[in-house]
């Protein structure tokens, strides 16, 4: 006979000392869901961009002028890149057993965060044209 499970459940994320691996895991879900929900927008943009050269050009112009448009695309890009890298980390663990201890897992997680940050920063500098603030040429 299965007894009713009365063990206390404590899932208050604000009081649990969640390790960085756990935070990364939740972010993997959040980023996946966010990119999923926003995907129709990307399909819409793909459709417009392939309609004609004029519409493609208009879209490019809008992207250059409208900050909000840039910000949304940038955030989507960050979420997608993070989700991909965190997924690669997961598969590395499952297939090759890489990063399965607490120590190596923590290092790998920071590596994923660092890579996401680096790629995002490069793209941020590029699409917002911030070269002069970051590079003294």
């Amino acid at each position: 006979m299965i007894e009713k499970d009365n063990r206390p459940v404590h899932l208050n994320l604000l009081t649990i000392n969640l390790p960085i691996i756990g935070i990364s895991s939740i972010l993997h879900r959040v980023s996946g869901l966010a990119v999923f929900v926003c995907f129709p927008l990307l399909v819409w943009l793909l459709g417009i961009s392939l309609e004609s050269e004029e519409r493609f050009f208009n879209l490019q112009n809008l992207f250059q002028k409208m900050i909000l448009f840039k910000v949304i695309i940038f955030l989507l890009f960050v979420g997608f890149v993070y989700h991909l890298l965190a997924g690669v980390k997961k598969i590395l663990g499952e297939v090759f057993g890489i990063g399965e201890t607490l120590k190596s897992g923590t290092i790998l997680t920071w590596l994923i965060f660092g890579l996401t940050f680096a790629v995002s920063l490069i793209v941020l500098i590029d699409i917002f044209n911030l070269y002069e603030y970051f590079f003294v040429l």
Partner: peptide, 16 residues
């Protein structure tokens, strides 16, 4: 909701 989003994305992208 998820099924709707997937159906939308699939049909729309294939039409494109």
């Amino acid at each position: 909701f998820v099924a709707g989003v997937i159906a939308l994305v699939l049909t729309w992208s294939f039409l494109i």
